[in-house]
Design a protein around this nucleic acid. Structure first.
Lengths: 334, 334
DNA sequence: TTATTAAATGTAAGCGCTTACATTTAAAGT
DNA sequence: ACTTTAAATGTAAGCGCTTACATTTAATAA
């Protein structure tokens, strides 16, 4: 592998000049630039990224930490991030946190130890205080799907409350008056916000909220099935069920089918996230779209702008959900 | 950030000694080791990974290139890889190739330029020759889901043909005699192998293969729907359809429902891959399991063993598929 | 023409480590 | 006590770049 030294020798110039044409950050006469370029071509020179990083104190890498690498979210988010970063010659280093505080923290430290210039964090378990502290220490990062007042400028969020509101409003518009809700884990911020939206929509429609019609799931499909059973067991009537994510909605569907409950005739179902498989389900699932691709892209852009000083980027930090109406919801009948 | 120099000063030893206790690769007396360790702790010292890489000519990073970052495969594979690598202090850098030769090649070069110690490649479009050449150049890599004779030791594959065989054999066992097949793009190696398996199973059962009962899809859900239509249009009767992946199987299901074809009563469907959503479909999909998690793990282990000289790893290069029987397939009736 | 100034290029000191080789120290042998 | 030998530690030369500063060259002004 050729080094900058060999290029400089072949071109008959100094190391510094070669570096200058590489980085294009200082004037070099056209003539010498020409010589250097052709020397590079002749040697098939590729700069050593590691050496550049050491000398410039910039690794050109951004660490991406997500809860789970499998799961429907990650792929789209990653896809957006990689694409955006790659266009600027940066690369992504990944790690997972498994929604566990210790693991998340260890991953963050791992990534920092790897000298990432910035981090994109999708973390749930680590405390606000830890993140605030991180910001104060000067670590450059953006938070996806989590809002912390004190470091709001680091946050890229979906208005989850608005999403919950939309979902419930939708079934309310369809004349349902008794609507059940299967929530995510109550310690997760997004789960809280979605549930709040639900309550708000009920309130705005003048329907009183009944906590018995809420089941707390864990965002997994099986807790959707379990949730339906639990809800049915209360003997409270309901004609629609809002699920805090699509996986649980899928669980509800499966269980409903086993119980010979017709969807949407007897029960309307609304999900949240609009993961790709929502439209593969039967019936296709009405859900709230989570624009994860755009948000991933925005996260990358934030970093490009703030850490790498790229200009001309339009930055936005709160995204609005929108309803995707399909076949699992229907006007209340009888 | 403390450097090795400051540690050495505080501990009252030389740089080299500090480096030795860090890397634990040369004898250091217990007494001085102790001093160094406590100096490190006192300073909160973290070695600079970049500087280590430059000096040792080892970046501790492995590049992972996949066709698509979204899609059901990537997550599981990535999850396995990250987990395995992380346990050894290595990290993954990701890139996508979009099943396009130029993009794949550019990505490979990008990763090499990033000084990855090794690559895990899930590529489809780049030529055999290019990969053989890469191996000859001394680039260390493993190929997932692609077999090339000349560099067979770099390949980690599923026996796709066997998978195709299993799928068809299953419906044959269920007394179906007329079975249609929706294939992946014929230029993809795995698509060919799966189709071959199908043919072989028919042959072994003494059923002659009818090319009219094969439709070439593109592995996407919609081509499953289109495939069913096309197959139906041939006017050839069939009571089962094997799909070369689950997404297309899902498309077939959707379309069958629209046509009021009962599954599995009137049509048995078998998929391939066993992506997580296969069990969310209605009816749940009988499919061939693709052990992508294990394969990802094995890919990482290969690299740990070959590039990082880790010992004690059991290496395996061909994985066997197994059938996952669910509700979309049923004994032939009438 | 010569002084003045800006543009182009070169020199050399790091960046924070690893490691071959040299030196010192301690243990063992006679 | 005095070699011999091995263990422990130190010295210093890189790894391949970037960049502040110094120097040379060319352009402009007087």
């Amino acid at each position: 592998m050729a080094t900058i030294y060999q290029v400089s020798e072949l071109a008959g110039v100094s190391l510094a000049t070669v570096s200058r044409v590489m980085n294009n950050n200082a004037r070099v006469s056209d003539k010498t630039k020409e010589k250097v370029l052709s020397a590079m071509a002749e040697l098939g020179y590729q700069p050593n990224a590691i050496a550049q990083s050491l000398a410039s104190n910039c690794s050109n890498s951004v660490g991406v930490l997500v809860s789970e690498l499998h799961g429907p979210f990650f792929g789209d988010m990653m896809s957006a991030i990689e694409q955006t970063l790659r266009g600027e010659g940066k690369h992504a280093i990944i790690a997972s946190g498994h929604s566990n505080a210790d693991t998340e923290q260890a991953s963050i430290e791992f990534l920092i130890g790897r000298k990432c210039d910035a981090l994109i964090l999708h973390v749930e378990a680590v405390s606000d205080a830890y993140l605030i502290d991180l910001a104060e220490k000067g670590v450059s990062f953006v938070l996806i799907n989590r809002y912390i007042e004190q470091i709001s400028s680091h946050c890229i969020c979906l208005d989850n409350q608005q999403g919950g509101y939309l979902a419930t409003q939708h079934v309310l518009d369809l004349k349902h008056t008794q609507v059940a809700y299967i929530s995510g884990p109550s310690w997760k911020q997004d789960a809280q916000a979605r549930l709040n939206g639900h309550k708000l929509a009920l309130q705005d429609a003048g329907i009183s909220f009944d906590s018995e019609l809420v089941f707390e799931g864990d965002y997994q499909q099986l807790s959707g099935s379990a949730g339906l059973d639990a809800l049915l067991a209360t003997d409270k009537a309901f004609s629609a069920v809002i699920c805090a994510n699509d996986e649980m909605a899928s669980g509800v569907m499966t269980r409903a089918r086993e119980l010979n409950l017709d969807i949407p005739e007897q029960l309307s179902i609304v999900g949240f996230d609009n993961i790709i498989y929502a439209s593969y389900l039967y019936p296709t699932l009405t859900t709230v779209d989570y624009p994860i691709f755009q948000m991933g892209k925005m996260a990358a852009n934030y970093i490009l702008a703030k850490t790498y000083d790229k200009s001309g980027l339009v930055l936005r930090d709160v995204f609005v959900p929108k309803l995707e109406i399909r076949k699992s919801s229907k006007e209340f009948a009888k």
